[in-house]
Design a protein around this nucleic acid. Structure first.
Lengths: 113, 113
DNA sequence: ACGATAGATGAACGCGCATTCATATGAACC
DNA sequence: GGTTCATATGAATGCGCGTTCATCTATCGT
């Protein structure tokens, strides 16, 4: 893939290759960040940080169709960002992990310089 | 956009609407997360966490073309994730912010359960 | 000044993925 | 059992964006 090798510091490349995070771990990290990077899903996270909510209220809150909300919740569920609690026909979603909270907070601080 | 309103808990919707992060702040957060969510850019961040590097070495390290690396570095630069130091014709990139470090670490812990 | 090397940038292709539409499941109430 | 309400899911469309190719700028050495 790479063209004419013009590596300036082979020793640096070797050293970093050994020590950096890569492979499957990096793919998983990328996948997780992609999940929360989507504006719609980040809105959902932002709401669930305050309290658990049902799909119906989330749809109203975000001014979206139920279907779209449900699709995004499925993505969040598959990636263990949210968990579900059923109460009759209503299903309540909440965050499943403290890490989400931390990532959200740090990102919030970052964009506010 | 939303269809027949079937809101179950109007009070909850009102409350969360007032307290949740939204609007421009949320867009900025989403944009930042998208930037670091890309596998290629996350690899670059992973490498720069260890030490500053030049484009040439990064290309070798990631087995990519210089052009692709340069494009991604431009994205990272525009979003204040990395900063540049010029030394002759060689340019050394490094992370510009401690927040990146935190987001990376927390994400790493998250994917390792 | 000229060639060589490091990097940047513009344009275009191609794919991943979010939204939409339509339909399906599943629980509650009669 | 059938209807209604809350949510889920499958298929199809459309667009954002990462990669590639080609070109351009800038800096060093001679």
């Amino acid at each position: 893939m790479a063209n004419h090798s013009c590596t300036i510091h082979p020793d640096v490349v070797d050293d970093v290759t050994k020590r950096m995070v890569r492979g499957e771990t990096l793919n998983k990290m990328s996948a997780f960040l992609k999940v929360v990077a989507d504006p719609t899903r980040l809105s959902i996270v932002s709401a669930l940080l305050i309290r658990e909510m049902c799909v119906c209220d989330l749809a109203k809150l975000l001014n979206m169709e139920h279907s779209a909300v449900s699709h995004q919740l499925a993505v969040l569920r598959r990636n263990d960002v949210v968990k579900v609690r059923a109460d009759g026909k209503v299903k309540y979603y909440s965050l499943s992990d403290e890490h989400i909270n931390t990532v959200f907070s740090v990102t919030f601080m970052h964009v506010n310089e």
